[in-house]
């Protein structure tokens, strides 16, 4: 234990903090925060496929993969933001507002669809900047700032449209094909949004774990004053993540509006909490300092499959929230138990 012989006459240490024998690959896998959620996902898939013959059918899986990327994109942004110690309740409203802006501008023939697309994204940049600025510069908790923004954005969408959905059917352009065009692999219908989701996940996963920006995100969420003292630009990092989250929510909302051929001013209502649930179920720490993109992807699938699966096995969809709530509670208990077990001995 003590390599230096001059240390040998010291008292025995009272405690050992780090095991020196290196754990096996299996132990490492089990020790990861994504392990619990992964097990739950596998159990879910097995259970639903045993209880329903159609759960694993091509049709159902295509269906499942159509909407999942839209929630998933929001969850990716939220993962980064929560890791930095903040969260955003306005994503559901931005998901609703962005396509309203885009389609209203296009339908009223104010501008081309492409231009309207960028105006809608530009608006989400402003919303994210505004959220971040209020949180970091005015030191108002993100709960209050983004709650306010949630109402402003939803109210704007309802006001612009008088509460009516916007037409999107004139929209067969290259842009809509790029965003959410579909194609078939055999019988399997795939939307381009799935590919975009995978791309975003890879880029953000790399950013979070491999880049300096990612180190700053984790430090900002873990101990922002220590990070600041080391020269980390904590406020700027958080503002950029608020912008990222808003842009991804806007993009997801636009994707959704093209796919279902409707831009409804109420769409996205309640998504903010479901997205936050996906993120924390996957293992990201709600109070910041640790985040996992892989865990979030697992969390997204856990909740989406739950919603899909309980309908497939004949449980009324209205019971969905019972299951979601139970999963959240169970997962939080698991993470907290693992955390305490990990820290016992230090």
């Amino acid at each position: 234990m003590v390599a230096n012989p001059s240390q040998a006459d010291f008292d025995k240490p009272k405690r050992e903090s780090v095991p020196i024998d290196s754990p096996s690959t299996l132990q490492k896998l089990i020790g990861r925060r994504e392990f619990g959620p992964l097990v739950l996902l596998i159990v879910e898939i097995v259970a639903f496929s045993l209880l329903s013959t159609t759960f694993l059918s091509t049709g159902n899986l295509s269906n499942l993969l159509a909407f999942t990327p839209e929630m998933g994109m929001m969850a990716l942004g939220m993962t980064m933001l929560i890791t930095a110690g903040e969260f955003d309740l306005s994503v559901g409203s931005v998901f609703g507002l962005a396509p309203i802006i885009m389609w209203t501008l296009f339908n009223q023939e104010v501008m081309s669809l492409e231009a309207a697309f960028f105006v809608a994204l530009g608006m989400s940049v402003l919303i994210g900047f505004f959220n971040g600025w209020f949180v970091t510069k005015l030191k108002i908790p993100s709960f209050l700032v983004t709650l306010g923004m949630m109402m402003v954005a939803r109210g704007t969408a309802l006001y612009i449209t008088d509460g009516f959905p916007q037409r999107t059917w004139r929209a067969d352009s290259a842009l809509t094909e790029i965003i959410v065009g579909d194609f078939y692999i055999g019988e399997f219908r795939v939307y381009a949004s799935l590919l975009w989701f995978i791309l975003f996940a890879v880029v953000l996963g790399f950013l979070l774990t491999q880049s300096r920006f990612g180190n700053w995100i984790q430090a900002a969420g873990g101990n922002s004053s220590a990070a600041h003292a080391r020269g980390v630009r904590v406020n700027r990092t958080k503002i950029m993540l608020f912008i990222l989250t808003a842009v991804l929510a806007a993009y997801a909302g636009i994707t959704s509006s093209i796919r279902v051929s409707a831009a409804n001013p109420n769409s996205g209502t309640g998504y903010e909490l479901e997205v936050i649930a996906m993120v924390v179920i996957g293992g990201t720490a709600l109070m910041g300092g640790y985040g996992t993109i892989i865990g979030t992807i697992i969390g997204v699938f856990i909740l989406r499959m739950m919603r899909n699966g309980i309908v497939m096995i004949g449980i009324p969809g209205l019971a969905y929230n019972i299951f979601i709530g139970a999963i959240i509670l169970g997962m939080m208990a698991l993470h907290s138990w693992l955390e305490r077990r990990h820290h016992s001995g230090t």
Binding site: S211, G214, N215, Q218, A219, G222, A227, V232, G289, Y290
Partner: peptide, 26 residues
Amino acid sequence: VTQLSIARNLFLGREPLKGPGFLQWM
């Protein structure tokens, strides 16, 4: 930052980078 590793704490704010141009990683 207790969540971060020893190495990440040591270099926090002064992370050595590699890779081309703006596409740099730690």
